[in-house]
Each structure stands twice: as C-alpha cells, then as structure tokens.
Computed example of a mutant assay.
Amino acid sequence: MDNEQVDVVIAGGGPGGLNAALVLGRSLKKVLVIDEDRPRNSATLRSHGFLTRDGASPDEIREIAREQLKTYPNVTFIKDVVEDVERKNGLFIVKTKNGKMASGRKMIFATGMKDHLPDIPGLDKVYGKTVFHCPYCDGWERQHDPIALFADGKALLPFVKLIFNWSKDLIVFSNGPAGITAEEKKQLMHYNIQLIETPIANLQSTDGQLENVVLQNGDSIRRTGGFMASTGEQQGSSLPARLGIRLNDQHEYVTGQHGQTEIKDLFIIGDAKNTFTSLVGAASQGYEAAVKINGDFAAENWADGLKTTSH
C-alpha cells in the first residue's frame, strides 16, 4: 500500500466508515479504509435500534459488513491508525502508525469518540452488560428495573427526564457534589427521585450483573441496572483539528451538510461530529457523505471532460 493513490481515504471502520465505503465502492470509486479495530462499542454485548440487526452483537454486525464489502475489489482495508494527514496538490497525503503511506482526492474521518470511564471501582465489570450510556440501545431491557443513574452538573436533569421514560425507580448518584440548582433538586423530589451526593466506593456485581452501589460512608444500595450521562468521551482523532477544523462547546467537530467541513473534500461523520450517533445514525451519515462525494466526483469529471474537449 506504500504511496498508493485512491479516490477516497476513510479513517475509521465503524458503521459510518463502512457504509460510506459500501456506497462509494458501488459507485466505482477506489476506496481505502484504515481502521485500528478497537471500536467504541467493544464492551457492548448486543446492539439495538438497527433495523434487521436488532439484538446482534457489534462484532457480528462488523463481520457481516466486511464480508459484504468483499464483493467490491475496489474497496480495501488495512488494520492501522492514521497518524498524520497533509493536504498537498489537491490530495490528502496519509501516513499511518505502521509507516504506510497513501493519498486520496477526498477523505472521510469516521474516527468517532473514545470513552474514558470515571474511576469507579467495579464499573469496568458492568459497563456494557448492565450499566449503559444509551437508553435507546438498552432501555427496553431495563424497563421498570431499579436503576442507578450516574450524572452530575447540567447533564443531570435532562438525562433523568430521559431515563424516567423506561423506569420510575431511579436513584441518582452524582459521586460528589451534584452541581445542580435548588429548583432542579426540587423537581427530583417532586418525582420521588433520590439524589445521593456521597462519593461511591465501588459497584458490586456478579458476572456483569450490577447488584449494589456501595458508598464511601458504608451504605449499600441495591440497583440492578444503570445508565451514565457521560462516558468521559474524547475525540478519537485530533487530526481534523490539526488540519484546522473547529470544535464546538461539546468538543465535536463542526461540519456543514453531508459532513462536509470547511476544508474542501474533507468530511467528518458519526460520533466525531455528534458525540453519540448510534449505529444506524452513523451508517446513515456514511451513506449521505458518500452520495455527496460521488456527486462531487461526477461534477468534477464532467467539467474536466469539457475542458479537454474545448482544447
């Protein structure tokens, strides 16, 4: 792959990147997908909300996608990480962690976010099994359960309102000062939702099943499921920022329609622009960006042909 030139380089092989590769491959474009194979949803046992794949594991979905893409020899993959990108002479010159080089006329970043979970002992044993981030993915399975909701600050009350749709048996654990207003605390009391600001000592579980939230004062509170307002998410790649793409207040990359950035021919899709997009949302954005990119190619090639003819 050294110094290989393709039509489109895609950094990231999640549902957004893979769906973009599918549409571009079917559009007769030469596509290179570079992915480190460390997906954000690796801790998830089952994915939900993706029509025809509801309940499938993320690994299964990726395997099916990659198998189907084998139909298109113009789409290739390497397991690697894009470490540097330079825009030069109308091309995106890409260098990987393993020292590979490639260039593309257009580029998609589908590098997502990386989670940095809070330092709560025992959380790693239950996250993705009985404690989750996305209620649309996992709320159905936790309906009416005794839920521990981990949140603080401005995100606390909006997240409570959302989770309240699936279970009214909520206790909020802020793991220290909640950082909310007296009016917000009053609203929680109105709905008999207890707010516990005592720091958490650990989460007790058996085989991934949450059983108790143990506080530093020794109290042990039974809960069988949980949701986290934040997973400490951070951008999976800083390269778009180094290229000049702005970040908003939520540390998401700013794009226009179809994922097009302020840099011509550079697109960003999925969690990198939305923090949490969902599998089907990311796949949809990959489709949309790919259609826009192929349309741009078509217009550019048509214009180039006219120039050649005129001479």
Rank of each mutant, 00 (worst) to 15 (best):
S310I: 05
I200H: 15
L243R: 05
Q143Y: 02
F109A: 07
E36L: 02
P135F: 04
N248V: 07
A201D: 14
K95Q: 03
C134K: 05
T52L: 07
L210Q: 08
K307D: 09
F77G: 11
F297C: 08
V81A: 00
T181F: 14
D219S: 08
Q187W: 07
A56R: 08
L45Y: 09
I263C: 01
M189G: 05
G139L: 01
R66T: 13
V81K: 05
M113K: 14
W302G: 06
K125C: 10
G208V: 15
I10Y: 05
F227I: 12
G139V: 00
D249H: 15
D119S: 15
G14F: 03
P15Q: 04
G176M: 13
D265R: 12
V131M: 11
V94K: 02
E197P: 07
L162S: 10
T76L: 00
K79L: 03
P135E: 05
N98P: 00
G17T: 04
E67M: 10
I171T: 15
G112S: 13
L149I: 12
Q204R: 12
V291P: 02
M101C: 11
K97E: 06
D249R: 15
E36Q: 08
K79F: 04
I193A: 06
R66S: 12
L247T: 13
E36N: 09
W302A: 14
H48Q: 01
I10D: 04
D84Y: 10
A283C: 08
I293G: 12
N212V: 12
N19K: 14
V131N: 01
N294T: 13
I200N: 14
N74A: 01
T76K: 08
R105N: 15
G256Q: 07
T277F: 00
A303I: 12
G122I: 08
S57E: 11
Q234F: 03
V94C: 02
G176I: 13
S230M: 02
E252A: 11
R105Y: 15
V82M: 06
R53N: 09
L162E: 14
M189Q: 12
H251C: 10
D304S: 10
G236H: 12
E233Y: 02
L239S: 11
T309G: 00
I120D: 15
F164P: 03
K95D: 03
G286R: 14
I171V: 14
D84H: 13
G208M: 14
K30T: 08
S174G: 04
N175K: 15
G49M: 00
K292H: 14
S167N: 11
Y127K: 04
D169S: 06
P177K: 14
H190P: 01
V33Q: 01
K88C: 01
G12M: 05
G259D: 14
T308H: 07
Y127P: 04
A21I: 05
T224D: 10
D271E: 03
E183D: 14
R87I: 08
A148C: 07
T111E: 14
L28G: 00
L279P: 00
